[in-house]
Write a protein that binds this DNA or RNA. Sequence first.
RNA 1: GGUCGGGUGGCCGAGUGGCUAGGCUCAGCUCUGCAAAAGCUGCUACAGCGGUUCGAAUCCGCUCCCGACCUCCA
Length: 500
Amino acid sequence: MSLKIYNSISSQKETFTPLVEGRAGMYVCGPTVYSDVHIGNVRTFVSFDMIYRYLLYLGYKVRYVRNITDVGHLEGDVDTGAEDKISKKARLEQVEPMEVVQRYTLGFHHVMRLFNTLDPSIEPRATGHILEQIEMVQKIMDKGYAYEVDGSVYFDTVKLIKEADVYGKLSGRKVEDLLVETRELKKQNEKRNPADFAIWIKAEENHLLRWNAPWSEGFPGWHLECSVMSTKYLGERFDIHGGGNDLKFPHHENEIAQHYGACGNTPANYWLHTNMLLMNGRKMSKSEGNFITPEQLFSGESEHISKAYSPMAVKFFFLQAHYGSTLDLNDASLGAAEKGYRRLLEAYNTLNQLSSEIPRSDKPLAIEIEEGIKAAFEEMDDDFNVPKSLARLFEMCATINKMADGQLDVNDAGQYSLDIAKKGFKNLLIDIYGLSDESAAGTDDHMNQLDGLMKLVIDMRQQARQNKDWPTSDKIRDTLAAIDIELKDGKEGTKWVIGK
RNA sequence: GGUCGGGUGGCCGAGUGGCUAGGCUCAGCUCUGCAAAAGCUGCUACAGCGGUUCGAAUCCGCUCCCGACCUCCA
């Protein structure tokens, strides 16, 4: 079976065929670092992290580029005096724009690390590529797809629409509508047509971020940095371009336009878009109070949740829905995900304890295990369907627990299928989904010491239980529970696990 | 208003023509000093109304509702 990807530009699942065999280039629109990272934003990057990891698992040599936008992203309406987001924040807080950039870039990285995502191969910044952006503007002008008005340069969308059938494809926009748009032209408007957009903007007197360019002292338009950096690091044509659904228009559509204007072709073969994270069925909105930050999720300090959730529980919650679907974040669902995640993780740990005296079995149990794992991987090939893949693993949890309980005979499974299961769980859970066992945090030395200590405590409790000294045995259990160590009595003795 | 995507059991969430998704919750049972854990069993849904079909959650039409985008947004 081969990997199939839902391509936004064709609205169809397509077999993934990289431009260069064995290699994959992926560009994902990163955050604009003007404030703390949005939890919805995190979902998008967790999704692409999973996609990156799966491509790596499949053996592709992947170059994963995710940018940091630190200039050019405007707030408000360009025509009526918009302000750069970074600039505005810097002005409000009376700091250097680069201080704003530094603070929120570090914050973003910190949250990404908590969610156990891999770093991209390259994480370029817009301000580090001003020269290239100026060059691209020039290139677009040379090809006749842009015009200058009083120091600002605009992309001639109308010309592109007339000459090439590339604009509007991604967002499903009808170009006729764009051409006849009757939006009122506001004062100061320099564009020939409302569909045109700025690629170089002349800086006003008080604008903090500015660079010298042939047209004016100014700054690049939003959209441009992605075109420049994707082209620079992945080439004029590359495999995958990703981002949030809300970037389809105008951001990605304009990227395609610029890229065509400069290079004469469209940039990416496959466009992937993640869907929005909702909260309590509605769009997250700061102004409406329908909002929660990653920190609040981890601390539990929010009116929207009843308790704290660990980063992995939240990540698991994300993974239970397909990246292309909207997902509703709420307290009950987070709680359900947390429990499910723990159960899965415990089954994984249980699995790793299992072994068989039979090297290889051909009994139904062995076949069931081998096919279950195979199915879990096949779901991944179907447009990274993690929810279905997880469902296959959950189905195996019961089998694992029964083997551990002696209700099923491990020798009917045989070592070979057990090894396949162990490897499969490890590959999926740890390598591909990017989950980590938070209870296993700490150094190996500490874990060994803790483990020895727990063996002693469990042994003492066992003694008390044999003596029917219930107060003592319950005190041990309850005291441990109070510090989040749970004891689980089973047929094979008592196990312990850290967690609430 | 325009464009696109959705409405699935108590909750979340997969699923595009026939076969049990899965998780959580809940109930009963087994195990157990009690509890938890673990296991077993049960809970059969697809917004509404028409239509196509031997057969539809899945295709078509209409209605209602929700979300996203429409140059701030992952």
